[in-house]
């Protein structure tokens, strides 16, 4: 019994016209890629959030900034985005401080610029492939619809030179054409959901990064005031 069912689905796909088959293949590839990115982004964002939390805890627990910086530099291959921002800012700050004659606001501004640059890079990394999910979500239903319309056109054309038109003559063609829409929707729905979810998560991470940058600038400012 399962064999005939399998055959039914299979024959529906095999009997489809070339364009419909191409559309189905394309949508299958897109769906596969989008699922891959969904899982990959999910893991990336999860680890980014965990690392951010861990670093914030470390930073605000009153540790010495210098030792924190040394730890980050020694361990730079597996640190989170926020730690990278901190590292870039503090490196710039120490460099500027080493040069005699720079005033406090220049030092803080330099550190802030360095942090901003690292922040942009980190955001770019976090947001990579998200646009793919977005375009999958918006385009693949249309591609599926195109395949379906094409298939239905095909099956109606075969109806043209028949005298007694019955539903049975068009039904299989329409069913096989609708598979294209089904695949398109299957690719689109998770992509849209994941896109919305991930862009929300990334926005929240970005807000955390930005507020950390502000707070860290304040900390640096205070240090310069203490020095001078």
């Amino acid at each position: 019994m399962t064999l005939t069912q399998d055959l039914d689905l299979w024959t529906l796909i095999v009997n489809a016209s070339f364009v419909v088959k191409a559309v189905m293949l394309l949508l299958l590839a897109v769906s596969f890629l989008s699922w891959m990115f969904i899982f990959r982004k999910w893991m990336t964002i999860r680890s980014a959030r965990a690392q951010t939390e861990q670093f914030e805890r470390e930073f605000w627990s009153g540790n010495d900034i210098n030792s924190l910086y040394q730890g980050s530099v020694n361990n730079r291959h597996n640190i989170g985005s926020l730690e990278r921002i901190f590292e870039a800012g503090y490196r710039e700050f120490t460099k500027l401080r080493a040069q005699r004659g720079t005033d406090a606001s220049t030092m803080v501004d330099g550190a802030r610029r360095a942090m901003r640059a690292t922040y942009q890079r980190e955001m770019d990394h976090l947001e990579s492939h998200l646009s793919f999910l977005a375009s999958t979500g918006s385009v693949s239903p249309y591609v599926g619809l195109f395949g379906t319309v094409w298939g239905i056109m095909h099956s109606f054309r075969s109806l043209a030179n028949v005298q007694q038109a019955t539903l049975a003559q068009v039904a299989p063609g329409i069913a096989e054409a609708l598979i294209a829409t089904a695949i398109g929707l299957f690719a689109a729905i998770p992509a849209v959901v994941a896109y919305n979810r991930y862009s929300h998560d990334i926005d929240r991470l970005a807000i955390r990064f930005e507020s950390f940058m502000e707070e860290f600038s304040n900390v640096l400012q205070r240090q310069t005031v203490v020095r001078t």
Binding site: F32, M36, M43
Partner: peptide, 28 residues
């Protein structure tokens, strides 16, 4: 500074490249 940051950036690899591939395959 920028070059240091760049190399650092280039070294980044997404975690779970293979895992996500396998998960997507399992999903389909």
């Amino acid at each position: 500074n920028a070059t240091a940051a760049n190399t650092m950036f280039d070294e980044r690899i997404d975690p779970g490249r293979i895992t996500s591939f396998l998960l997507a395959a399992a999903m389909h």
